[in-house]
């Protein structure tokens, strides 16, 4: 019996975006990372070759680990005290990309200053050859205050700057345009809002090959199904040819998973939740793997063990069935 396998031929292609720049291209990165370019749904190798594998980023929050789960702090040890060592450890752990997220204040309660942000990013650039994503705390005025000087002082590195949000994208986009960087735009789990922000950002003149989108997701048990479906819908729209959805997707399962009670809290929880440390890593891994299935191009994680597991899953998914 011969079966005709249904093959979807899509008119659209996801944009190809390169994170980071080597010396030859005006930056200092030892390697760059290229994502996107899909012409089919994730891992449908029997339809079209998937040109770039989804990549894994590890996140660091310099001077701001007070809200990190003890499990994470135990896994990283004292490198979290020093951004440069932390970055080196992230690279050694096998990440493709480093995400530096700044908070509003340091543990002493003093505001993170632009100078601190600049010197931290420079230290990270020194300590690691990986491409970088640099995010502000997500408060419009502070984001602008921190991200603009970082952009100015790292011209040409093709950093991914964020977060660009509906009410606050112009300044970050402008500073990215002026300094040859990229941006990431975040919208709250809604296809149309994501499209709208992409339109607004490209309207400013930023080319599409310098934007990635974060459609936002929820952690496992905390709304992952919304993020999952929004991502599937965005990718379907992209493949159908809607240019404003053809951006590679970056999502933050690490952040979402590790702020759930299940991952963050070890005491006073039901016995049926099992071992804390294992549970936390499972929580992050399962969140990430599901989102990879939904079309994520970059997953941002926090635990080095999760990175190993998600890496193995991605590698397997990237391997086509023997013909």
């Amino acid at each position: 019996m011969s079966i005709e396998i249904p093959v979807d031929k899509w008119p659209g292609t996801v944009n190809t975006v390169t994170l980071g720049a080597t010396e030859a291209d005006g930056g200092t990165r030892a390697k760059v990372v290229t994502i996107g370019g899909e012409q089919s749904l994730p891992f449908m190798h029997f339809e079209t070759e998937m040109p770039h594998s989804p990549v894994i980023a590890l996140e660091m929050t310099p001077s701001r680990t007070d809200d990190w789960s003890q499990i994470l702090l135990d896994a990283w040890g004292d490198v979290v005290e020093d951004p440069a060592r932390w970055a080196a450890a992230i690279e050694a752990a096998g990440a493709d990309v480093i995400v530096v997220t700044f908070g509003l204040t340091d543990p002493a309660g003093d505001p993170i200053t632009p100078d601190y942000a600049v010197s931290t990013v420079k230290a990270v650039l020194e300590a690691s050859g990986l491409p970088l994503v640099v995010l502000g705390p997500g408060q419009a005025d502070v984001d602008n205050e921190l991200i603009v000087p970082v952009a100015d002082s790292t011209k040409g590195e093709r950093l991914v700057l964020g977060l660009c949000e509906d009410g606050n994208y112009r300044t970050i986009v402008a500073s990215a345009m002026a300094n040859d960087h990229l941006v990431v735009g975040r919208t709250p789990m809604d296809v149309n809002l994501a499209k709208q922000l992409n339109i607004l950002m490209t309207d400013m003149g930023l080319p599409l090959d310098r934007i990635v989108m974060d459609p936002t997701t929820g952690g496992l048990g905390y709304g992952i199904e919304y993020g999952y479906s929004v991502m599937e819908r965005l990718r379907l729209a992209a493949l159908q040819g809607d240019a404003m959805t053809q951006l590679p997707m970056l999502v933050t399962p690490g952040y979402e998973a590790w702020r759930t009670k299940e991952a963050k809290v070890g005491e006073g929880v039901p016995e049926t939740w099992g071992d804390w440390a294992d549970r936390g890593v499972h929580w992050e891994t399962l969140t990430a793997v599901s989102l990879v299935e939904a079309g994520a191009d970059v997953v941002v994680l926090r635990h080095p063990e999760s990175l190993k597991r998600v890496r193995e899953a991605i590698d397997e998914l990237m391997t086509a069935a023997p013909a």
Binding site: T171, S175, A178
Partner: peptide, 12 residues
């Protein structure tokens, strides 16, 4: 130019 330019671009 950069400092004012950003403000002109972002609408401030």
């Amino acid at each position: 130019l950069r400092s004012w330019g950003i403000q002109l671009v972002d609408g401030r």
